[in-house]
Amino acid sequence: MVHRSFAAMGTTIELFVEADDVSDEFDAAEAEFERLEQVMSRFRPTSELSRLNEAGELDVSPELADVVRRALEARVSSRGRFDATVHDALVAAGYDRTFDDVPTDAPDPSPPARCGGGVSVEGRRVRLDPGTRLDLGGIGKGYAAERAAALLALTGPCLVSAGGDIAVRGVPSTGTWPIAVSDEMTLGLTQGGLATSGSERRRWRRGGAEQHHLIDPATGRPAASDLRRVTAVGSDAVEAEVLATSLFIGGLDEALAAEAAAVLLTVDGRTFVTGGIA
């Protein structure tokens, strides 16, 4: 098993491949992360996403069109729990720059911004309703992890972890990819993707009130969930990320009713394993 880690998309990326020497493929995967960050980062003024958010309408790359399309599908499938139009709400809450530069405390946040604005994709043409801006931080890492995994898969079984978003291809000689979801629990993943969403990290304060990065599109404010963390399994890392975020925002009861493949950790410390994970 060979391994490489590097920083990208505001997190640590880890690549694992069961092969002897894949340095060229590692380089290609690392370059792919950099390329996709330049496409999807809302913190880079010259990124394609920033230009789209500024112009409101743009002919974009196939990758950005693809991610926006998947975000729109996720908005429908999650019944609005997952919504990429939370950009202004995140900014209003104080997450207006790369997280390392966000002040840990500051005066009251701005009033919550409206979410749920119209977005359309026709071919490579993306149009945003006036005042609508996108944040693809939620699924961008999952999408990049899938792209990198597709590159590495040609050399052997592989796992790509982009922070909490994990994509796997193939099965290693151990029979499964062991992934720690907590100090007490390790999940073995053989295909698809896995992602974790929660309010434990990327937290800050505004006016003395705790803020975090998971915005409830219904309120435009950080979600007041009775869950602390959700790890979800999906057909790929993007689907897992959408599932984890929407389950977190929906709360425990909704997550239990969904019967999705997930591990739920509540704010009072209870753990639930759902969706046939045994």
């Binding site: 098993m1 997190t11 880890e14 694992f16 890492k141 796992l159 972890s161 982009a162 922070g163 909490g164 978003d165 994990i166 151990t174 499964t176 990819w177 062991p178 992934i179 720690a180 979801v181 390790t186 073995g188 896995l194 992602a195 974790t196 969403s197 929660g198 309010s199 434990e200 990290r201 990327r202 963390r229 790890t231 990320e241």
Partner: peptide, 10 residues
């Protein structure tokens, strides 16, 4: 199995 990687809040 010993974990290969840890998933965390991204």
């Amino acid at each position: 199995l010993p974990p290969l990687v840890v998933t965390r809040v991204s």
